[in-house]
Design a protein around this nucleic acid. Sequence first.
DNA 1: ACCCAGGGTCATA
DNA 2: TATGACCATGGG
Length: 218
Amino acid sequence: MSARTIYERLYATYGAQGWWPGETPFEVMVGAVLTQNTAWTNVERAIDNLKAAEALDPHTIVAVEPEQLAEWLRPSGYFNVKADRLRNLCRWYLEHGGHAALSDWDTPRLRAGLLTVKGVGKETADDILLYAFERPVFVVDAYTRRIFSRLGLVAPDIDYEALRGWFEAELGKGGEASRLFNEYHALIVNHGKDVCRPRPRCEQCCLSRRCAGGDKEG
DNA sequence: ACCCAGGGTCATA
DNA sequence: TATGACCATGGG
């Protein structure tokens, strides 16, 4: 089964996902940090706190007391860690001129820049590249590795860059790539939440009649 | 009660 | 290079 066929099946099953759930590129960046290993419902509460305080703004975030920022982020979990990470990202963002200036950077430079921020790893950087800057970068997460290794298409322990490269080679990076990657990653996450959990319960899986077992997890 | 969540960093070997 | 500990709230 090809990567394109899988996309078609996921799209036929779940429909358009309309990602990223955020009104501005900056809100996307904030969400990308807050959703690290955390359910999105918890992230929404934290973002709502920032909005209610009129603090969903990089200048405010770098200026407020660390304890205040952590308190707003509390519902998203790891709130002390994430307060640091979000401040680091906002500092970098402002130092480099914000979204307008960063939009002029080519993708390798922008990715490398994001990765210099302590607390921004590869997945978070790629979320930001794809969903805040509309760059054709395929985002890999735990669901991606789990689903595609259970289908036997990649090794269960394939590393991040190799798996990202696999998708980008399968799908191509030209033309509509950023739109396709946008929808594809969202569909993978939705499918993962639906049926492709660490302890498999894939009886209703639209991709395989029996995708349980066979991976090294659990 | 247990499992899981749209990860990343750091210490250790 | 490759594990393991740690971070923490909230839903199923």
